Amino acid sequence: MNILSAMAGKQGQNKADSPNDLKTTQNFRFFVLTLIILLLNGLYLQFAWNRYVNIASYEAVQLVESLESIFHPEHIAEILDDTNDTDKPGYILAKNSLTKLVETINPIHFAYIYGERDGNLIFLFDSEPINSPNYVSPGQIYEEADDIHWEPFRTGESVLTKPITDRWGTWISALAPVKDPSDGTIISVFAIDFSASEWFANLRKQMIPDIVISICILILYFAFIHIRMKNIALRSLNKKYLIMKHYIEVCFPRRLLVLQ
């Protein structure tokens, strides 16, 4: 009678424990927790990327605005009135300044000033020497101009473009309006071009520490999960051992005493 009661009690305990149900619950919890960890890592990396993009954009706009101040609006106005007269001291001074600027500041590939005439954007100055294949003459229409190139004329604010492809490549440009100091009217726009591939390569380089942190977090998490699963498996084996031992103690008490 005692044996039957003990066995019935153990069977009832096994049903209550429902090992398969417990295992399913544990797996579901680990699955949900893994999704949460992956989501948080993704959000962290997205936040880091946006932070670096905002910093780079801010620095580019600050740079173009500070460089714009070195040009004389009256020299630009002279060329805008007569783009054929490239012998004027103002033209030579502005062009030399653009050339030195590109040579001095490494990330900048091109620097130029463009204006508006008859509903078109035209180049006034650029940083390329006359014998360069990338040289554009004053008065040449900027055929690849995007709508954002008109933005400084409309708003009077500096802007940073998205990557735009033209005959010279794919660029991210910082644009700053050049204003007439006498009345504040916008007479032209000063632009500097950054290589889009170099721009994003630099952003990815800055992301390396954040990616390393994210990977380390994932490694620690999956190591924790592995250890946790091992502990659960060991507890399950230990529980089975204790049940088996109890059966033996109840069913074969004399043999157990002899063995002891």
Rank of each mutant, 00 (worst) to 15 (best):
D81G: 10
L242M: 09
I79C: 03
N84Y: 08
Y58D: 12
Y44V: 03
F123N: 09
Y247A: 09
L35G: 15
Y247M: 12
V102P: 02
S197W: 04
L45A: 05
T86D: 05
N84F: 07
L35H: 09
W168L: 15
S18A: 15
V159E: 05
R51Q: 10
I76G: 00
V258D: 10
D21T: 12
G90W: 01
E74P: 00
S127R: 06
I108F: 01
L98Y: 03
L4D: 13
W199M: 04
K162L: 13
V136C: 05
A60C: 01
S182T: 11
K205T: 13
G139Y: 00
L22H: 11
Q62V: 02
F71Q: 02
H149S: 11
L256E: 11
D183V: 02
K88M: 09
T34C: 06
S66I: 08
D82P: 02
K230R: 12
D118P: 05
Q26D: 13
V32D: 06
P138A: 04
G42V: 07
M229A: 14
E151K: 09
G156R: 00
K230L: 12
Q46N: 15
F153E: 03
S182F: 10
Y112R: 07
I172V: 14
I108A: 01
L4I: 11
A223N: 10
D180G: 03
L43H: 07
D81I: 10
I186K: 00
T24H: 09
R117L: 07
G169Q: 05
K95N: 08
I141G: 05
L124K: 03
R254K: 13
N84H: 11
G119M: 08
I211F: 15
D210K: 12
C216H: 06
T155E: 04
K162H: 09
A191S: 15
E198L: 10
D82R: 06
I122R: 03
S195G: 07
E74Q: 09
E78Q: 13
E116G: 04
E68S: 13
I248W: 03
V61C: 02
Q13G: 06
A60S: 13
P73C: 02
A176H: 07
I215Q: 09
F194V: 05
Y52L: 12
R228E: 13
S236F: 05
I92G: 06
D17F: 15
P209C: 05
Q11V: 13
T155G: 03
F222Q: 11
